[in-house]
Design a protein around this nucleic acid. Structure first.
Lengths: 164, 164
DNA sequence: TGTGAAAGAAAGTCCAT
DNA sequence: ATGGACTTTCTTTCACA
C-alpha cells in the first residue's frame, strides 16, 4: 500500500490524464496512452491499490454551497509534546469546517484551511479555537481568491500541464 | 456558469457521494440517492455545467512520485499595485512546482503550496523567488505531515462525512 | 421531474501470445 | 505484460406519466 512501485512511461501518462479528468473512460484513456483497454484497466487498478492514486473525487465550489469565506490559519501551541499535538488534532478533526490541517515546522505547529458561511461564523469558530488550553498563538490569512491551482507535475512525462 | 442554482436534497446527496468517490457508477449513485439512473445522470451533468462540481480529478501521492518535500510559503510584496500582483502571479504560474497559490489578506499577500524532490531543490526554488524584484518577505512552513483532509461538509445533508 | 424499456457503449474476463 | 474476442453490465436516449 505504501511501497515504491516502479512506474513506467505509460503509468505516468495515465496519472497525468486521470489528474486532468478522473472520470475519463478506460477506452479513451487506453487510446491516449497507447495501449488497449484491458491492460489499461489493470494498470489503473494497480495504481489505485498501490496508493499512487490516493483517490478520485469531485471538487466542489465552496461559494456555491454557501461557504462565503475561506481562511488559512497558523497555529502555535504552548507545548509540542505528543499528547498536546494529538489533543489538538482531535479538536480539529471534530470541526467539519476545518477542511485540512497540516503538521508543520517553522514559526508555527499547524496550518489549517478553514471555511465558513460568513465572517461572523468564521470569527466565532476561530475564537473558540483560540480559547483551547494549549493554544499560544493564532494568525489567520483570509483568502481573497485563487491565483493558481495546478496538478502535480508528472516527472518524466511529456504531459500537457494544466496551468493557472 | 457561476449563477446560484437551487440545490435540493438529492443534489446535495449526489455531491456528497461524488466527493467521496468521483468514479462511482451512475447506477450505484442513483440507487444511493433514491432515484433512477436517467434523472441522476441529468443532475450530475447540470451540477457540472453549473460549476457546483468544479472537476473530478485523481489525487496523487506526492512522495511516491518523487516529491519528498512540501512547503507552505507566505509571501509579502513591496507593492500591492495590480501590476505588481499580476507580475508575481505570472512568475508563480510559470513554476510547475508551485502547485497552488492563494491571494490573501493579513500579514502577507500570497500563500503558496510548493513541492520539490528534496530540500536542496526546494531551497533553490525559494531563493530564486526571494530574489524577485518585488518580493519583500518570505516565510516558509515545511509540511511534516497531514493531520486532516476532509471533504467540504454538505449543508443540509445527512451525508456520511469522511473524517480524518 | 420522475420511470421503464431498449439500443448502444463500455467494463471486465479469459485466453493466447 | 499485452491484445483480441467474448460476456456482462452500465450509460444514455426516448416515450410517457
Amino acid at each position: 500500500m505504501t511501497e515504491r512501485p516502479p512506474l513506467d512511461d505509460i503509468d505516468l501518462k495515465i496519472l497525468s490524464e486521470l489528474q486532468k479528468d478522473g472520470r475519463i473512460r478506460i477506452n479513451e484513456l487506453a487510446l491516449r496512452v497507447g495501449i488497449t483497454a484491458p491492460p489499461c484497466l489493470r494498470r489503473v487498478r494497480t495504481l489505485r491499490s498501490s496508493g499512487v492514486i490516493q483517490a478520485i473525487r469531485a471538487t466542489l465550489d465552496e461559494r456555491l454551497l454557501g461557504y462565503e469565506v475561506m481562511t488559512f490559519v497558523l497555529i502555535q501551541l504552548e507545548s509540542q509534546r505528543l499528547a498536546a499535538i494529538e489533543a489538538f488534532e482531535a479538536a480539529v478533526t471534530a470541526e467539519p469546517r476545518f477542511l485540512q490541517c497540516w503538521r508543520i515546522s517553522g514559526d508555527a505547529d499547524f496550518m489549517l484551511k478553514c471555511v465558513a458561511p460568513d465572517v461572523n461564523d468564521m470569527r466565532r469558530q476561530l475564537l473558540q479555537f483560540a480559547g483551547l488550553p494549549n493554544v499560544r498563538k493564532i494568525r489567520s490569512f483570509p483568502v481573497l481568491g485563487v491565483s493558481k491551482d495546478a496538478p502535480l507535475p508528472i516527472p518524466g512525462s511529456l504531459a500537457t500541464p494544466n496551468p493557472a
